[in-house]
Design a protein around this nucleic acid. Structure first.
Lengths: 102, 102
DNA sequence: TCCATATATCGAGATATCTCGATTTCTCGT
DNA sequence: ACGAGAAATCGAGATATCTCGATATATGGA
């Protein structure tokens, strides 16, 4: 988790919303049968939900990934993104530690 | 505390550093005798520490104030800025609530 | 009232972010 | 090897942020 990159990645309402949507698969259309047991969400579904272009969402997911807030896994033609809960907790701890008075 | 503005204000390393410096008066030169009992720090001292122009720091402090993260108080020609600890805690709670899985 | 000092505001150029459509790359089936 | 679909990368225009110097405003003291 890169604190500066995470800060930057989270400084955008859509990217924050994506991270929120990824908490629960029911925020997206049902998975294809062959993806039923995979974690995470493909770019196309996130794109549809966010109402932004494919390239924008791909870019967003790349930023979230570089920040270390999500994990990506490729399965065939699909890339599945999911939250990195540990990294998110680490980010929150780091921000808290930085902001809170000793 | 405005969550979006706070997010934006904190997305800058110098502004984060300023908030950090403001935790402890000993990060700055000693106060003038007539300011000894006042809370907060004047713009000029913050500017000196940050090595940026006066207008930039005034702008930064305005952003932090609009975000609700600092409180300003004028005393004579000086404006003293200090952390709003309650607002900072509220910001952290809000971010945590937004990011953490239920 | 006039000056000096502290801060705020203004205007502008440099840099970064946003967002898109077009193109490229990757992977699977055929 | 080839075509189709998913995602990544590229290039560019629009918008936002950064940062400055110059100027304006506010305040206290002579």
């Amino acid at each position: 988790m890169d604190l500066d990159k995470a800060n930057a990645a989270l400084n955008n309402p859509v990217r924050r919303k994506i991270l929120d949507w990824l908490k629960d698969r029911s925020n997206f259309p049902p998975a294809l049968a062959e993806h039923a047991d995979l974690e995470g969400m493909c770019v196309a579904y996130i794109q549809e939900k966010a109402c932004l272009s494919q390239s924008t969402i791909s870019n967003y997911m790349g930023l979230l990934k570089q920040a270390g807030l999500v994990i990506s896994e490729r399965h065939g033609q699909f890339t599945f993104y999911r939250r990195d809960e540990d990294a998110i907790r680490a980010f929150l701890s780091a921000v808290e530690k930085e902001l809170l008075k000793p």
